[in-house]
């Protein structure tokens, strides 16, 4: 007993150890390598050498500012659209789903049973120039004759929104589901209209889900390249496409690594600003 008590201070560390070890091995170490690589110069023919080449960073921003901006624009729009679509759905499932809750949640997750690539390729068929979507949009005059959806920015944003929707919907559902219904009843008892009760009680209580959902959607969306590759044209390419082409086609590993770091830094900065704006306690619930 004595021994056990004396060692009890160890317990939290032992519990933390596997996760920490995992993060150190598979996140921090590769990140270190990536950072090292981002400061190398040279090319594949003659090899790369570490030269503190900070110029990789400035030239990346100079040359690919447009793609950086486009990435955040597309990711931002997709996040907002995903939020506007998911919130009512999550709200309805949480408060009106009844015994169908689990089935309805399954419907939201169902697309995830199919791999990412196949889901996106399916959109290529749905939005095809000869598909029914484009035909209907032509008929009702939304698309001008000869207009198209595939290979446009709209298709890319639609693809991203669709692919990351569950990341938005599920956290929203969880936080809405946890709300104590009596609080809303109390608000109504105190003569709050339904709308006022929503704005002043329900929505603030669901903020942790809103924060988690937007982050889980925005972060991967900003670095995505599959949607732009398959549903866009060269004028819709995002920074992920540039990184991919630098890495794969040009074998310019330092440039690819430095761009990855810039992307990471910008996202981190945005999260900090966001967290400050809504309050850090919302991040942790």
């Amino acid at each position: 007993m004595r021994v056990f008590h004396r060692k009890r201070w160890l317990t939290p560390y032992l519990l933390l150890a596997p996760g920490m070890l995992w993060l150190a091995l598979f996140f921090l170490v590769p990140l270190g390598f990536l950072f090292y690589q981002s400061l190398e110069s040279g090319n594949i023919d003659f090899g790369y050498a570490f030269t503190w080449a900070w110029g990789n960073y400035s030239s990346a921003i100079r040359s690919y500012r447009g793609q950086f901006e486009r990435s955040f624009e597309y990711a931002g729009i997709a996040t907002v659209v995903a939020f506007l679509v998911s919130y009512p759905v999550a709200y309805w499932i949480a408060f009106r789903g009844g015994r169908w809750k689990n089935l309805l949640l399954l419907f939201i997750v169902a697309p995830f049973f199919v791999t990412y690539l196949i889901r996106t390729l399916a959109w290529e068929t749905i939005l095809s120039d000869n598909g029914f979507v484009v035909r209907i949009l032509h008929d009702i005059g939304v698309l001008s004759p000869g207009g198209r959806l595939l290979a446009t920015g709209t298709a890319v944003v639609a693809g991203i929104t669709y692919n990351f929707l569950p990341f938005m919907a599920l956290p929203l559902y969880v936080s809405l589901e946890q709300i104590d219904q009596r609080l809303i009843e109390a608000a109504e008892d105190l003569y709050a209209s339904r709308w006022a009760a929503f704005i002043r009680v329900t929505f603030p209580l669901s903020l942790p889900g809103v924060v988690a959902g937007t982050l889980l959607t925005f972060i991967p969306a900003a670095g995505d390249f599959i949607n732009a590759e398959l549903l866009g044209s060269p004028t819709n390419h995002m920074i992920g496409n540039v990184i991919e082409s630098k890495y794969k086609e040009l074998l310019d590993y330092p440039a690819a690594a430095s761009m990855s770091f810039i992307l990471m830094a910008i996202i981190l900065a945005m999260i900090l600003l966001y967290a400050r704006a809504v309050g850090t306690e919302q991040l942790t619930g």
């Binding site: 023919d45 060269p234 540039v242």
Partner: peptide
């Protein structure tokens, strides 16, 4: 095929 300048110009056209 190994001209970095041309390859980069090409990738910028194809992927930008």
């Amino acid at each position: 095929l190994n001209n970095e300048k041309w390859l980069t110009a090409w990738q910028n056209l194809v992927s930008a």
